[in-house]
């Protein structure tokens, strides 16, 4: 078990998240991809906390904060998606291109 594997796994998860973030047409799936990315970050924090800072484990504290804030952000994100859905009757990301040139 080495630090690099954790970091590579986290990076892979982050990339999957980015792919989902950019490619999903469904707004909820975009939010889900954001969650994936946040979890990749959390993995990083936990790995560093374990391997580099086992005494004061600041990384674990950060992770707690990230989880908490991610929950709040997901709630607000869903609220926004709901608000848009009420107006436009769709959650297709490709329909939300009104603010162009």
């Amino acid at each position: 078990m080495q630090l690099q594997y954790f970091l590579i796994l986290a990076a892979a998860l982050f990339c999957i998240g980015i792919y989902g973030l950019i490619n999903s047409r469904n707004a909820v799936r975009v939010l889900m991809s954001v969650e994936l990315m946040l979890n990749a970050v959390n993995l990083n924090l936990m790995a560093f906390s374990n391997f580099l800072d086992p005494q004061t484990i600041k990384g674990q504290v950060f992770t707690v904060f990230v989880i908490a804030i991610a929950a709040a952000e997901a709630a607000i994100g869903l609220a926004i998606v709901l608000a848009i859905y009420r107006n436009r009757d769709t959650v297709d990301m490709e329909q939300f291109n009104l603010l162009k040139w």
């Binding site: 980015i18 973030l21 950019i22 490619n23 999903s24 975009v30 990301m93 490709e94 939300f96 291109n97 009104l98 603010l99 162009k100 040139w101």
Partner: peptide, 13 residues
């Protein structure tokens, strides 16, 4: 100006 596509996902890309 067409690089401002209006797609949020494009901006993120």
């Amino acid at each position: 100006k067409y690089s401002n596509s209006g797609q949020g996902q494009f901006y993120i890309l």
